[in-house]
Design a protein around this nucleic acid. Structure first.
Lengths: 347, 347
DNA sequence: CGCGAAGTGGGTAACGTTATACAACTGCTG
DNA sequence: CAGCAGTTGTATAACGTTACCCACTTCGCG
């Protein structure tokens, strides 16, 4: 006895035969195209339901749209990205579009591989979150299909961009700490291997914004940047370095929450209590920051909003590929929790 | 002046013309099919490179494979899932397959929507991580395309399954705590709305395994299960409930790390020090647990291995759809960190 | 009543790829 | 040297859908 033969999929032809109409008619109905009478619609809809028909995306793609949008994330562990995804998917919820995700695992090569894969699969549009590809490469991709770039501060004429204003975010942090009386506020930055790449990337902007804000508060002399990486390890090493200073900072602004975790660990090992002896701030307001036992003051990037805006402009561009490109900048907010407090008075 | 017309994509016909061979020949080369001479291969490969040709997945799908595999995650925030993805993708790295991700946002409806979307897109196979669909539904899907189910303990004759042995995992926790002298070991479980659904799901197995292990250690009388949910809030509420007992537990086994976060928060608020006064254990060994300031003892599910095994069996099934189904069970390990310690002596 | 416009349905030719079948050629065997 | 088995390349027909065009009906209006 053979195991049940793989049942052939129901096609538009089957539906047409069942409803005793042409395939063209069925196609019109499923596309909501012009030229179908109500009675026709009823008949066809019924046939579709009875047969459980679902259009083949592959075949559709050969003639036009696939109703599929690709969203590339650099990494699945940073809890900030799901915020973007939420906002994005929510916006697309009552459209016909489906969202499929890809991840580059923070690698250049995988990033382009995934991007190409999405193009090959006929996606109607693609969102690239914090891509590391060269701008020229992004422009080339934008020539093939509509794309939205999230998190790169460079403007492009050929694709839309959505960013969070990291300059403002860094300013929020510095002002908050300065308002608490801190002067020796240090920053832990992420050092990109490739310096050229780094320009316009969030990490560079944050470091820049930090220095700018310090100067604005008359703290130019106190500027102290340690360049490691946005990792727990990077934060740990950065903090160790800062604690070794002749005059250690009274506040540390880590460029990312994950780095702040390493900072907290280093401080705990050094026997320093937070925030009594030293304050710590992160960036991204990830779920790490919100965890009760951590309760880290952080900058919230309005990820949902970013995702939502990205979906909006992508749909607009899919509808009109000639429209001029858009640059959207959202404003971050500061979430004060329990790792920041008044500057301890000097002994 | 018109903005550059969307350049038509290079097709197999273009390659064939450029290399002065038939499209069939090109097709054979890109598929590594039988019947191509070395010289032909060289010619075609060169033409492909020169033209930058990439096959259209949609068109391929109409005749056979799409070289695409779908991986559905219930949620993007649980840091355990990326482990599975890593192992999965790694295994597929040197195949032609691309992996695209989908997420159900822990919702029944979205789960089936995404699954259907993957089927419509002609995926060659799909991996479902901790799906909530009824078993009958899973079997139906398995009739359409190869699927691997991760995390459901029920065996199926029509699809492959990979699970981590949660019974063993719960046993590791209980034994570890009992070895430390604890007797009043409580468990915080996840209560599924739909009791039927719950059977075979990891949460149910963990609770069951906990009770089994307690009995095995002669602690049957101390069994104490609080049913809330695998969320920070759930852990918090569960812990509060346990602390209100006449004889509060000296150790709490939360069924998931995220719940353990809530437990730690509740303990901190109650002024109890961990692990001196009370021990806490999580499950999943997520990145939360590994964070320095948290340092939670947890059960590691070998996510990479699960993903890797899933990829292996999926490829096998794609190669031979008639092969009999496989049930793979991996063994968890206990990662001891700083939230567990000896049972405090009674005052 | 004639005629155009609007509305409705269908026929057909793509879209880019692969599976199948087959033709042409090679080299070997008896 | 006939015959046969491999080997190598090609022609062709799908696969499921949609865009385009055309035919037919109905209706309103001069």
């Amino acid at each position: 006895m053979q195991p049940a033969a793989p049942p052939r999929r129901v096609t538009i032809v089957d539906v047409a035969a069942h409803a005793r109409v042409s395939t063209t008619a069925v196609s019109k109905v499923i596309r909501n195209a012009y030229g179908v009478s109500p009675s026709m619609r009823t008949k066809v809809t019924a046939a579709i339901a009875e047969l459980g028909y679902r259009p083949s995306t592959g075949a559709r793609g050969m003639r036009g749209q696939t109703y599929t949008i690709g969203l590339m994330l650099p990494d699945l562990r940073n809890p900030f990205f799901p915020e973007i995804v939420d906002g994005f998917v929510e916006r697309l919820a009552d459209t016909q579009y489906e969202v499929l995700l890809g991840t580059s695992f923070c690698g250049q090569e995988a990033e382009s591989r995934v991007t190409e894969a999405m193009i090959d699969r006929g996606m109607d549009g693609v969102v690239l979150v914090a891509p590391t590809a060269a701008q020229a490469q992004l422009n080339r991709t934008a020539g093939i299909l509509p794309i939205v770039v999230i998190g790169r501060h460079a403007r492009s004429a050929v694709h839309d961009t959505v960013v969070d204003d990291d300059t403002v975010g860094a300013g929020l942090v510095v002002n908050h700490l300065a308002d608490l009386g801190h002067r020796r506020i240090a920053h832990i930055a992420h050092q990109e291997k490739d310096a050229v790449r780094s320009a316009g990337m969030p990490n560079a902007i944050r470091a820049e914004g930090y220095q700018q804000a310090m100067r604005a508060r008359g703290l130019a002399d106190e500027i102290d940047v340690v360049s490691t990486s946005y990792t727990e390890q990077g934060g740990y090493l950065g903090a160790r370095q800062l604690l070794g200073r002749r005059h250690p900072p009274t506040a540390i602004f880590a460029g990312a929450d994950i780095a702040a975790m390493g900072v907290l660990q280093a401080l705990a090992e050094a026997g320093l209590s937070v925030p009594e002896e030293i304050s710590v701030v992160g960036y991204d307001n990830t779920t790490y920051a919100a965890l009760g036992p951590i309760s880290l003051t952080s900058v919230d990037q309005a990820g949902r909003q970013i995702g939502s805006e990205a979906a909006r402009v992508l749909l607009e561009r899919i509808a009109d590929r000639q429209k001029s490109s858009v640059f959207i900048s959202t404003s971050p907010t500061l979430v004060v929790r329990r790792t920041t407090g008044p500057c301890p008075s000097e002994p």
